[in-house]
Design a binder for these strands. Structure first.
Length: 501
RNA sequence: GGCCCGUUCGUCUAUCGGUUAGGACAUCAGGUUUUCAUCCUGGAAAGAGGGGUUCGAUUCCCCUACGGGCUACCA
């Protein structure tokens, strides 16, 4: 059975790059009737951010990416927070230590820093590895007695992975084929930090093994540490899972990974749901009026494609059609305009009842006064003008509320010295019960009285909704009724009568 | 700088050696409409550059350029 995981660090809010990784893992798992696991990689206490784990879980929940095992719900391979698995890591690192595949290192940070700076001056990179570790203070250079003594004296130490082979290492990625690295350039990565906590590399591999992960789908930023991870599998004699390194989501300019700063600067969201920072809310896609389905639909097409690129897909369909073969290798730039377009398409394909469910409680109360048929017909009338969720209320309100004021620019455009008499006669003909108000009726009326049809329609439109653009005004009149139409015509007339033209 | 990954219209992408290089968003023009939006029709728009391999390369290989990732006791 396939078992996949999403393993974020709670160092801040989840962003859509992470959400996409979660999505692909989820799709692959579900497509194969497998399990999707959420594991919180909170090994770095210093970088842990309050509320982050909640944001991750809430975001997944909002997008309806449900995990089968994870914190809160648990499962057979828990705990699912790495901070709660300390004893496991120390048990496994001992195995490496005993087998001489890992070693203690007592170096001071300053010494390492100096070595780094020195190498940097020479124009190269410092690597704590097979060619340099002899110059440092570790259990490979110190005698056994000295090492035990230092440990006994509580001198801080880290445990490093020992890489000793002088050859290439071939790392197999399903998407990219075999990627070649050289062991000599690899660092003796720290496995256990001086505070006893594991680093990502170690905890991640141990947990993937223990949690029986079969396929790892993660971001390309992990490709360079891929050989370290495979070495760990080899040292433990474990069969590694399959690996897929996803291309990154780039910011719209293509310069660098999509980041929070870009989003704030350019006014688009980067988080699925909002995140509060310094007491201000950074809106997410949810707050901007996206549905979970449309966000998922959009990000699924960043770095992956399927035949009908213009087809709107819900999560259930994505599960069916997802395939690894169509994964892209190059980074994909984020395009908010396209995301917005997909959202509007999703909304327009959604049935009225569901759409109304998305509105505020206040609004739901408000529309209770109207019968359902009326509200549905209004919604049908305005549906193709809805791009984000808040538009639903806005567009319906435009019709059921009387305009509080008029758009001044539009008003100036249509009002002239004929407007007052025209409005008066409109008020009169709308009041006459004998008249069956329809488009044809108005056209005939215009022809008989030598009035431009457009003039009448524009006056009607601005009196009823307060501006010059909007849905079919005859339909609006049918919905709101003649009585209110007349009220609105009269109201406009009164308003402009006091106007200097 | 080093190591790794990548590169098809402005953007997301299709093409698994032979295509008038297709679609979508955006854009432009036209049509429908009382307006705007929707919708419909159409246009402009791409294989980074240079070498190979091949009867034939966007596709395979090499070099260069450009972009990205990594380069922490961060993940």
């Amino acid at each position: 059975m396939e078992r996949l995981r999403f393993a974020p660090s709670p160092t801040g809010p989840l962003h859509i790059g992470g959400l996409r990784t979660a999505l692909f893992n989820y799709l692959y798992a579900k497509q194969n009737n497998g399990k999707f696991i959420l594991r919180i990689e909170d090994t770095d206490k210093k970088r842990k951010v309050n509320g982050s784990e909640k944001h991750i879980i809430d975001s997944l929940k909002w997008a309806e990416i449900n995990f089968d095992e994870g914190p809160l719900i648990n499962g057979p391979f828990g705990p699912y927070r790495q901070s709660e698995r300390a004893s496991i890591y120390s048990k496994y690192v001992k195995i490496l230590l005993v087998q001489n595949k890992a070693y203690y290192a007592f170096d001071l940070n300053e010494d390492l820093e100096d070595a780094r700076k020195k190498k940097e001056k020479e124009g190269s990179r410092f690597v704590y590895g097979m060619n340099s570790r002899k110059n440092f203070k570790n259990s490979l250079t110190l005698s056994l007695e000295k090492t035990t003594e230092l440990i006994k004296k509580n001198v801080p130490y880290v445990i490093r992975l020992k890489i000793n082979q002088k050859s290439d290492i071939l790392c197999k990625d399903i998407l990219r084929g075999e990627v070649k690295f050289n062991y000599e350039e690899l660092e003796d990565k720290i496995l256990i930090k001086s505070d006893g906590s594991p680093t990502y590399h170690f905890a991640n591999v141990v947990d993937d093994y223990l949690m029986k992960i079969t396929t790892v789908i993660r971001g390309e930023e992990w490709l360079s540490s891929f050989p370290i991870h495979l070495t760990l599998y080899k040292y433990f004699n474990w069969v590694p899972p399959k690996f897929i390194h996803l291309p990154l989501i780039l910011n719209p300019s293509g310069k660098g990974k999509l980041s929070k700063r870009d989003g704030i600067r350019n006014g688009y969201p980067v988080y699925p749901i909002g995140w509060i920072e310094n007491e201000i809310l950074i809106p997410g896609f949810k707050e901007k009026g996206f549905t979970g389905d449309s966000l998922l639909n959009y990000i699924a097409q960043l770095g992956w494609s399927f035949f009908e690129s213009n087809e709107m897909c819900k999560l259930t369909k994505l599960i069916k059609i997802f395939n690894v073969e169509n994964l892209q290798k190059g980074g994909a730039r984020f395009d908010y305009i396209k995301a917005l377009w997909i959202n509007s398409k999703h909304i327009q394909n959604t049935e009225n009842k569901t759409l109304l469910n998305h509105t505020s409680d206040e609004f739901k109360m408000k529309i209770k006064k109207y019968d359902q048929k009326t509200i549905y017909s209004i919604l049908e009338l305005v549906k193709n003008r809805i791009e984000v969720i808040p538009d639903i209320e806005k567009k319906i309100n435009l019709i059921i509320d009387s305009p509080i004021g008029f758009n001044e620019r539009d008003l100036k455009k249509v009002i002239n010295k004929n407007s007052v008499p025209l409005l008066k006669s409109l008020s009169t003909i709308f009041s006459d019960e004998k008249n069956m108000i329809s488009k044809d009726f108005l056209i005939t009326y215009c022809n008989e009285n030598k009035i431009k049809f457009g003039d009448i329609m524009q006056l009607l439109r601005i009196s009823i909704i307060g501006e010059l653009s909007g849905p079919d005004i005859i339909e609006v009149i049918k919905i709101i009724g003649l009585k209110r139409t007349i009220e609105r015509i009269d109201f406009l007339n009164n308003t402009i009568s006091n106007f200097k033209i």
